[in-house]
Amino acid sequence: TGEEYIAVGDSTAQQVGDLTFKKGEILLVIEKKPDGWWIAKDAKGNEGLVPRTYLEPYS
């Protein structure tokens, strides 16, 4: 379980453990880390770190 967020920009994984996503994708945020990198899952079930500045709450 988690909260749904929509990507407001494209982000390409810079290192192992990062999640690549495109603008408009809905991501499920699993954990919000205080350093600004959140753990999220995409629609295909891929999981990784995403920069919170690229996400907005999805409603």
Rank of each mutant, 00 (worst) to 15 (best):
P57S: 07
S11G: 08
E31R: 08
Y58W: 11
K41M: 12
Y54Q: 14
W38T: 01
R52P: 15
E31W: 09
P57G: 04
W37T: 10
Y5E: 01
V16F: 13
V29N: 00
G45Y: 02
L55I: 08
K44T: 09
K44I: 08
G36T: 03
E47H: 09
A13G: 13
K22W: 06
A40D: 00
K22H: 09
F21G: 00
E4S: 11
L49M: 10
E31S: 10
I39P: 02
P34V: 10
E31L: 13
Y54I: 14
I6Q: 06
A13P: 10
E4W: 15
V29E: 00
V8N: 09
V50E: 00
K32Q: 06
L27Y: 03
A40T: 04
P51Q: 14
A13E: 09
G48P: 00
L55A: 00
L19W: 02
G24R: 02
T1M: 13
L19G: 00
E3M: 10
V8T: 11
A43G: 10
K33M: 09
D42I: 02
A43V: 09
T53G: 14
I26V: 09
W37F: 12
T1Y: 14
N46I: 08
A40S: 03
S59W: 12
G9W: 15
L27H: 01
L27A: 00
D18I: 14
E25Y: 04
Y54P: 03
G2K: 08
K33A: 08
V16D: 12
W37D: 06
W37M: 14
V16Y: 11
I30C: 05
Q14W: 11
L49F: 12
G2P: 12
P57Y: 06
E25H: 06
T12H: 13
D18N: 14
P34S: 13
T20G: 09
D35C: 07
D42A: 03
R52M: 15
Y58Q: 07
K41H: 07
I6R: 09
V8F: 04
D35R: 01
G2L: 11
G2V: 10
A40P: 00
I26H: 05
S11Q: 12
G36A: 04
G48S: 02
K22F: 09
A43W: 09
S59K: 12
G45E: 03
L55H: 01
T53N: 14
L49W: 10
K32P: 03
K41W: 05
E25Q: 11
V50K: 00
S11H: 15
I26K: 06
G9F: 15
G24P: 00
W38P: 01
P51D: 15
L49A: 09
Q14S: 13
T53V: 12
V29D: 01
A43Y: 09
Y5C: 04
P57E: 09
Y5G: 01
T1E: 13
S11W: 15
G2D: 07
V16W: 10
G2F: 13
Q15R: 15
A13T: 10
E4Y: 15
D10C: 08
K41N: 04
L49D: 03
L27D: 01
R52E: 14
V50N: 01
V50H: 02
G9H: 15
F21R: 01
G17E: 05
A43R: 11
S59P: 13
T20N: 10
V16R: 10
S59F: 13
D42F: 01
W38R: 00
K32C: 04
K23S: 06
G45L: 03
E31T: 09
G17F: 05
I39M: 09
Y5A: 02
P57C: 07
D42Q: 02
I39L: 14
Q14H: 12
L19N: 01
G9R: 15
W37E: 06
D10R: 03
L28D: 03
W37Q: 09
G24L: 03
E47L: 14
G45C: 05
A43I: 09
R52L: 09
T1K: 13
D42L: 02
F21C: 02
Y58R: 07
E47G: 04
Y54V: 13
I30L: 11
G9Y: 15
A13H: 10
E56K: 08
P34H: 10
I39A: 05
K32L: 03
N46R: 08
T20K: 10
K32Y: 05
Y5F: 09
V8E: 02
G9V: 15
K44F: 14
A13I: 08
Q14N: 12
S11L: 15
E47A: 08
V50G: 02
D35V: 02
K23I: 08
L19T: 01
I6Y: 07
S59E: 12
F21N: 00
T20Q: 12
E47P: 04
A40N: 00
P57D: 05
L19F: 05
E25V: 04
I30T: 07
S59L: 13
K32G: 02
I39D: 02
Q14T: 14
W37K: 10
K33T: 09
L27T: 00
D18G: 14
K22C: 10
I6L: 07
D42T: 05
V8I: 14
E3C: 14
W38Y: 06
A13S: 14
E4D: 06
L55Y: 01
T20E: 11
I6F: 06
N46Y: 06
E3G: 07
L19K: 01
D10T: 07
P34K: 10
Y58D: 05
L28V: 10
T1H: 13
D10G: 06
W38C: 03
L55N: 00
D10I: 03
G17K: 06
V29C: 02
K33W: 07
T12V: 13
K33S: 11
P51V: 06
K22G: 05
Y54D: 08
S11I: 15
T20M: 09
T20A: 12
E56Y: 06
R52C: 15
G45T: 01
Y5W: 13
E31C: 13
D35W: 03
G48H: 04
L55W: 01
D35N: 10
Y58T: 08
K32T: 04
D42W: 00
E3W: 14
G48I: 03
A7N: 01
G24V: 01
K41G: 02
S11Y: 15
I26G: 01
Y58C: 10
I26M: 06
P34C: 11
G48Q: 02
T20L: 08
V29A: 02
I6E: 04
P34T: 11
E3Y: 09
E3T: 08
K23M: 07
T12A: 11
G48F: 05
D42S: 05
I39V: 14
G24M: 02
P57N: 05
D42Y: 00
Y58V: 12
I26Q: 03
G36V: 02
D35F: 04
E56T: 07
Q14P: 08
A13F: 09
A43N: 10
I26W: 05
A7W: 07
A7L: 04
G24Y: 04
E3I: 09
L49Q: 09
A7F: 09
V50Y: 01
A40M: 14
E3Q: 11
L27K: 00
K44E: 11
G17S: 07
G24C: 07
L28H: 08
P34R: 08
E25I: 02
V29T: 00
V50M: 03
D42N: 11
Y5S: 00
K32V: 04
Q15F: 11
V8K: 09
T20H: 10
K22E: 06
S11N: 12
T20S: 13
K41L: 11
K32W: 04
I39W: 12
G36N: 05
T1V: 13
D10P: 06
N46E: 07
E3H: 09
L55V: 05
A40H: 00
G48V: 03
E31K: 10
E3R: 08
T1R: 12
E4C: 15
I39S: 04
G48W: 04
V16N: 10
P57Q: 07
W37G: 06
V50W: 02
E56W: 06
A43F: 08
D18Q: 15
G36F: 04
E31P: 00
T1L: 13
I39Y: 12
Q15L: 09
D42V: 02
P34N: 12
K44P: 02
T20Y: 08
P51C: 15
I26L: 07
E25M: 07
T12L: 12
Y54F: 13
E3D: 09
P57I: 07
L19R: 00
D18V: 14
E25A: 09
I6V: 10
K32I: 05
N46F: 07
E3L: 09
G45P: 00
E4N: 08
